[in-house]
Structure formats: C-alpha cells, structure tokens
Simulated scan of single mutants.
Amino acid sequence: MDIDGVWIRARGITARGPEGNAFENVHLHVEPGSLGVITGAAGTGRTSLLLALAGRMRVITGDLVVSGHVLPGESRAVRRLVRPARLRPGCELERSHRVSEAVTERRMISGVRAEHIADALALVGLAPYRRALVRELHPADRLLFEIALAAATAPAGLVVDDADAGLPPASRHRVWSALRGVAATGTTVLASATDPPSKEYEVCHLPARPHHRRHGSRV
C-alpha cells in the first residue's frame, strides 16, 4: 500500500471536559506516515488528546490543523481521514462477537474487501481463530485485531488508545512493531501509552495536572 498519511500541527491547544480542562496548552508536530506516541499517567488527558486530533473532541484554545483542515470548524473532514482503532471508552470491539462476526460487521460498515482485511491481519502478524470470541483473545491479540480491522480501510490516520495497557514487555513489543508496520504503509499512527516505548518515536508527554489547576502548562 502507498497511503498519503495526515500531518498534524497543534500549538497551544486546550480541550475541556466535564471536570475542567482535559488537557492544556499542548504543542504537537506529527509528520505524514510517522508513529506518534502520547504518554502520561492516567488522568493526564491522553484519550482526550487523541479524540481532539481525530476531530472528535472540540479544542477551545490554540491552533490545530490536520492536513490543511482547521479544527474545530472542519472536524467532519478530519473524521473522514483519521479512523479510530480503539478509543476508550466507547470505541472497542464487541467482546461477545466471534472473530468472524467482527470481520463481517466491519466489511458491512466500511465496505472493505475480505482480502484487504486478510492483508491487514498479515501486516500485524495475527491469524486469529475465526470461531473464537473476541473476549477469548489474548489482550495483545485483541488489540492487534482492532488495529488490523481499522488499518484494512487504508486510512490516512489511525488512533490507538492504551497501546500498552496491561501488557507484558513481549506483548508490548509485538504491538509497537505492528504499529510501526502500519505507519510504514504511509498511514500516520497516533497511539497513547503510559510509558514511551523508545526514543525512535515522536513522543508528546502530558504532565500530571493538580486538580486545583485550571491554567496552561507547556508540553
């Protein structure tokens, strides 16, 4: 595949959630076809930042541009370019479905062909038993399955939440290798993690925010 990945420029962006600012004064620069990693402890706004970069959460201050589309005004165009593989909560595979049912559902929703899903599964190094329930898959395999289903549509951008959550080192290595493989196709990949995997990725670290603070901190 030869995909034109999205580029992202963020300067001083802030988004607000039900309990105050979800993240504050974030600066980010992501090149097309790269793997960007958003790190930080729980509660620092990793998921919210992914949502904002994917056009799914409104920024209230700062400048955010995704491949020439200015947010929040052009969020619909950005949502067409940047697809979620997993965003928590709300965007995960139905665990009671079988692998074959999840594949069929994705083909019906996106119109992707069976051979493209097969290619994407091979790309991430996964060959799941088609009769297995999604909840029966190993957590790393379940995440790789979600990544493959999203990558099969050849999106310009892909977001993956909690890429390292609950995984031992060997499984983390599999996931990061798979994400690097997806980025190698040209898709720009944005993933959140508790710890940065290595120095070879573009990393945006979100600092801890005291509950009483409401004003910006620079990243």
Rank of each mutant, 00 (worst) to 15 (best):
M1F: 05
D2R: 11
I3A: 05
I3K: 00
D4A: 14
G5M: 08
G5P: 04
R9G: 12
G12N: 07
T14S: 14
A15S: 14
P18N: 11
P18V: 13
N21W: 03
F23W: 02
F23V: 04
V26K: 01
H27T: 15
H29I: 08
V30K: 02
P32S: 12
G33A: 03
S34Q: 10
S34K: 06
V37W: 00
I38Q: 01
G40S: 09
G43D: 08
G43N: 09
T44K: 00
G45V: 04
R46A: 03
R46D: 01
T47F: 02
S48R: 02
L49P: 01
L51G: 08
A52G: 06
A52K: 01
A54L: 02
G55S: 11
M57P: 03
T61G: 12
G62L: 09
L64R: 03
V65D: 12
H69D: 14
H69L: 10
V70E: 14
G73W: 00
E74D: 14
E74H: 07
R76K: 10
R76C: 07
R80W: 02
R80M: 11
V82F: 02
V82K: 00
R83K: 11
L87M: 08
L87I: 15
P89V: 09
G90V: 12
S96V: 15
H97G: 07
V99L: 07
S100T: 10
A102P: 01
E105W: 06
E105C: 04
R107G: 07
V112L: 13
H116Q: 15
A118F: 09
A118D: 14
A118W: 06
D119H: 13
A120T: 08
A122V: 12
L123R: 07
L123F: 01
P128Q: 07
P128L: 05
R131E: 13
R131K: 09
A132F: 11
L133N: 09
L137Y: 04
L137P: 00
A140L: 13
A140F: 07
D141P: 00
L143F: 02
L143R: 03
L144G: 05
L144E: 06
F145D: 05
E146P: 00
A148H: 01
A150H: 02
A150K: 01
T153P: 02
A154F: 05
A154I: 06
P155I: 05
V160I: 15
A163S: 11
A165T: 12
A165E: 10
G166F: 04
G166V: 10
P169W: 00
S171L: 08
R172W: 02
R172K: 08
R174W: 04
V175E: 00
V175N: 00
L179F: 00
L179T: 10
A183G: 07
A184S: 11
G186I: 06
L190K: 01
A191N: 05
A191G: 09
S192W: 01
A193C: 08
A193S: 10
T194H: 11
D195M: 11
P196F: 04
K199R: 09
Y201W: 05
Y201L: 13
V203L: 04
C204N: 07
H205N: 09
L206I: 10
A208E: 15
R209D: 15
H211S: 13
R213L: 14
R214H: 12
R214Q: 13
H215I: 13
G216T: 13
G216D: 09
